[in-house]
Amino acid sequence: MLGLVLLYWIGKYFYKLAEEYNKSPWGFAILGIVVYYGAIVLSGLIVGIVMALTSPETLDNFNETLLSFLLLPFGILSCYLLYKYLEKTWKKNTPDPVELIDEIGKPNEIS
């Protein structure tokens, strides 16, 4: 149940961000969830490989619930980094309305 609430919040924040910058809201909400799961799978593989190389006998007795809580910050961090990257990129590419108002009435210069 906690996982569904987390997925809801991830999707909601990406949805709002995409809506604010006139992008596809559902596409970016799904992208946020996919990035979350992708980061968890990738970090899980890395942790599993490191554990298999260092002490293979611990893999048989390792608690899967503990592993899921261990990988949770990696998924959240990856979503946060993607969110901030998209926000920064879209904010930089958004035209300033004051500059656009100043351009009204000026003849277009075609090169």
Rank of each mutant, 00 (worst) to 15 (best):
P73E: 11
M51A: 15
G105Y: 11
Y13H: 14
G11Q: 07
W90F: 01
L77S: 10
L70M: 08
K88T: 15
D96F: 01
T94M: 01
V41Y: 07
L31T: 13
K12P: 00
L59R: 06
L2C: 01
W90Q: 02
T89L: 04
P107K: 10
P107S: 09
Y85D: 03
F14T: 04
I10N: 04
F69T: 00
I110F: 05
S55F: 15
D102W: 09
Y15W: 11
Y85P: 01
L71E: 09
T54M: 14
D96Y: 00
Y15H: 12
L42W: 05
S55I: 10
L66P: 06
N63Y: 07
A39W: 03
S55E: 15
K92D: 06
L17N: 05
N63V: 05
P25K: 04
G48R: 10
C79I: 04
F62P: 07
I49V: 15
P97H: 11
I10H: 00
E64K: 11
K92P: 02
L66Y: 13
I104M: 07
C79M: 06
L81V: 15
Y85M: 00
I101H: 02
E20K: 12
W9L: 13
E20A: 08
L77V: 13
G105H: 03
I104G: 00
P73N: 02
V35F: 05
F28D: 04
L6V: 10
L59M: 14
L53Y: 04
N61G: 03
V34C: 02
E109N: 10
K84C: 01
E103L: 07
Y83D: 03
T94F: 00
T65N: 12
F74Q: 08
S78Q: 09
T65C: 00
F14R: 08
Y37G: 14
V47R: 06
M51S: 15
L72W: 13
K84I: 05
K106Q: 09
V5P: 00
L2V: 05
F14K: 00
L53R: 11
P95C: 07
K23N: 08
L17G: 08
K106R: 14
E64R: 11
E87S: 07
N22R: 10
L70W: 05
L6R: 12
L42Q: 11
L31V: 08
L82M: 08
I33R: 01
L66W: 15
N108F: 09
E109D: 12
G38M: 09
